[in-house]
Computed example of a mutant assay.
Amino acid sequence: MRLAKLPKFLTALTAVLAGAGAALAPTAAQAAPATCTTDAKLVPTCNVLWGGAAGGFTSTPRDLALKGWEKASGRTATIFHQYHKGNEVFPTKAEIAMTNDPANPRVLLENWKIAYGSTWAKVAQGQQDKRIDAFAARAKAYGKKFFLVLNHEPENDVIARKGSGWEAKDFAAMYRHTIERLRDQGVTNVVNVMAYMGNEKWMSQSWWADLYPGDDVVDWIGLDSYVSAEKGYYHYGTFADLLDRKPKKGGLGFYDWATTKHAGKPVMVAEWGAYHRVGKIADKSFVYDSVLAELQKRPAIKAIVHFDTKKDDQGDRDISIDSTPASLAAFQKLAADPIFDVEIN
């Protein structure tokens, strides 16, 4: 090659290489993963919502308990789970303040035992419409989207006796009536969750299928389920075990039932945790270490909400994340995973 032509050649070569580099270089969209947000039903476009309920069965205000749990775990709870009954006024001022914190955005998950002091059948018959309408007005005034569970874990409250007012079919009718009345009152910011216990005993009952009120009035299917970290004790196992409990007489496990019978519905683990008996210390690390692999295999799970307490309603189970240093370290590692990075829209 003549030296006189060398500058032109080098210029051309530089242009070719630059073009090839541009073709190979990732675009901005490719280089940076899309931000995960929530849609109209609070379903994340990607990843999984992270939530908590803390201070159960203690006198500690729930907002302060959750903040302490968040500090210990290392992550703000996107979902703040609370419990109410009857004519209690909610969202409360403290709950609203928790969702108005610009530095730590949260969304409410409100459990409401609407039939408190009444029965499911009476609610379905319209005898608690004043209670429903009062809540509807508060929900509209609140304005923000939030989750609502009507009478979580209804299996435990069923009285399978004709006319009791607490039959499984009464629960379904109560649920349907309440959601339809809220809609009639113009409530558009409530996202409802049907939350089961998913216990093998109840799933085997002849009335279990009668609890479900219908896909048209259920936005999310929820599960409240726990495992023991104490080998040999009741429900010993990993995160998979709390998702896959099957009816005693055989049949689909809970997760498979939800995704098969109600395909397309997002699944929320509305309460979960690992426990050991009070005074019987056990390392919970293996339970927390099992969570991510299960979430990756089960794309229908869009939210998990940990319930944290040193002593549960039965008085003998420690469901706290910090019962041992190793347990806390494992939980902190879980909480730090980017799979829980979701912005509330």
Results as ranks from 00 to 15, higher is better:
1 M>P: 12
1 M>H: 15
5 K>N: 08
11 T>W: 13
13 L>M: 13
18 A>Q: 02
19 G>M: 14
19 G>C: 15
19 G>H: 13
20 A>W: 10
23 A>Y: 12
27 T>N: 11
32 A>L: 14
38 T>V: 00
38 T>Y: 00
45 T>D: 08
46 C>L: 04
47 N>V: 11
47 N>T: 11
48 V>D: 05
55 G>H: 09
57 F>A: 08
61 P>S: 02
67 K>A: 09
68 G>Y: 13
82 Q>H: 14
90 F>S: 05
96 I>G: 03
103 A>P: 12
104 N>Q: 12
116 Y>K: 15
117 G>W: 03
117 G>T: 03
117 G>P: 02
124 A>C: 03
128 Q>P: 04
128 Q>A: 09
130 K>S: 11
130 K>Q: 11
130 K>R: 09
137 A>G: 06
139 A>T: 01
144 K>F: 03
146 F>G: 02
147 F>H: 06
150 L>R: 08
150 L>D: 00
152 H>N: 12
153 E>R: 06
158 V>A: 08
161 R>I: 15
161 R>V: 15
166 W>H: 10
168 A>K: 04
168 A>H: 07
171 F>L: 08
171 F>A: 05
179 I>R: 01
179 I>K: 04
179 I>Y: 03
185 Q>N: 15
188 T>R: 14
188 T>C: 11
189 N>T: 14
189 N>E: 15
198 G>Q: 01
199 N>A: 13
203 M>W: 05
210 D>Y: 04
214 G>H: 13
215 D>W: 04
221 I>W: 03
222 G>Y: 00
227 V>S: 04
228 S>N: 09
238 T>V: 06
240 A>T: 08
242 L>Y: 02
243 L>H: 08
243 L>E: 08
246 K>I: 06
246 K>L: 09
251 G>W: 05
255 Y>Q: 04
255 Y>D: 03
260 T>M: 11
268 M>L: 09
270 A>C: 02
280 K>I: 02
282 A>D: 05
283 D>I: 10
294 E>A: 09
296 Q>V: 14
297 K>E: 00
303 A>V: 08
303 A>G: 11
304 I>S: 00
307 F>P: 02
308 D>W: 06
311 K>L: 07
311 K>N: 14
329 A>M: 12
333 K>C: 02
333 K>T: 11
335 A>M: 03
336 A>S: 06
345 N>M: 08
